[in-house]
Nucleic acid binder design. Structure first.
Lengths: 111, 111
DNA sequence: TTCTTTCATCGTATATTTGCGATATAAAAC
DNA sequence: GTTTTATATCGCAAATATACGATGAAAGAA
């Protein structure tokens, strides 16, 4: 039984995991790359670049948005997405803070 | 049909996604934290700390090992795990390289 | 040899993710 | 008004992930 035990972990652990999960698919990495490359916000260009159907891309965009990695506004038939650098940096700092801080004191490998 | 389209993406995108996936669960974040905190390699102590069954923890350890984030050696009844800092750094640099480099030229938000 | 301890792996059930086609929606073009 | 264009959402099927108990394996203790 896959009874969800995620709540049993700390808030921070869950947040980090959520962030990682949002990036845990090549399609979403590719989307982030496209969004980062273009200065202006991209809509359906992503669909042209990716080897996926429009509905699938839209779903991935939704997940990235839910995770807070990107911002998006819907303007009728046209939508506008862009990377949420602030959120990105926050999580990124949390990651490195968690591990690089600990890394200093035990550099030696043991296995 | 969830026909796996992951191969349609670049090697680097897949690697980054694999790395992210390995961290995409609070239990695995927690395991990494425990391994990082203890200078020596940990075996069953992780099971005591986490709110999960031994078999589940072992499975998470296996995934982390497969992803290359930790090293592990089995010494009969006792096993020894520790963080693979080299691999960790490599991926971490790849992440930041991918995004922070791009961040410089388009700091302005558009949405 | 026969326990005991420590862990990995197998089998299973359930939950979540992934992907697509079909359909809805909403503004602009006609 | 109708049509077109761009995107979101729904519903479904297949794949993966999550979790556990049961069992297996391997080394040391009795």
């Amino acid at each position: 039984m896959a009874t969800n035990k995620k709540e049993a972990f700390s808030q921070k652990e869950q947040e980090l995991a959520e962030f990682a999960k949002a990036m845990a698919h090549p399609a979403r990495i590719a989307i982030l790359k496209v969004l980062a490359k273009h200065n202006e916000c991209i809509c359906g260009e992503i669909v042209d670049v990716l080897p996926l159907a429009q509905s699938t891309v839209s779903q991935h965009l939704k997940e990235l948005k839910n995770a807070g990695l990107i911002d998006g506004t819907i303007d009728g038939p046209r939508s506008c997405y862009c990377i949420n650098w602030k959120a990105f940096e926050k999580f990124f700092a949390e990651f490195s803070g968690l591990f690089t801080a600990l890394k200093i004191k035990n550099e030696k490998a043991c296995c």
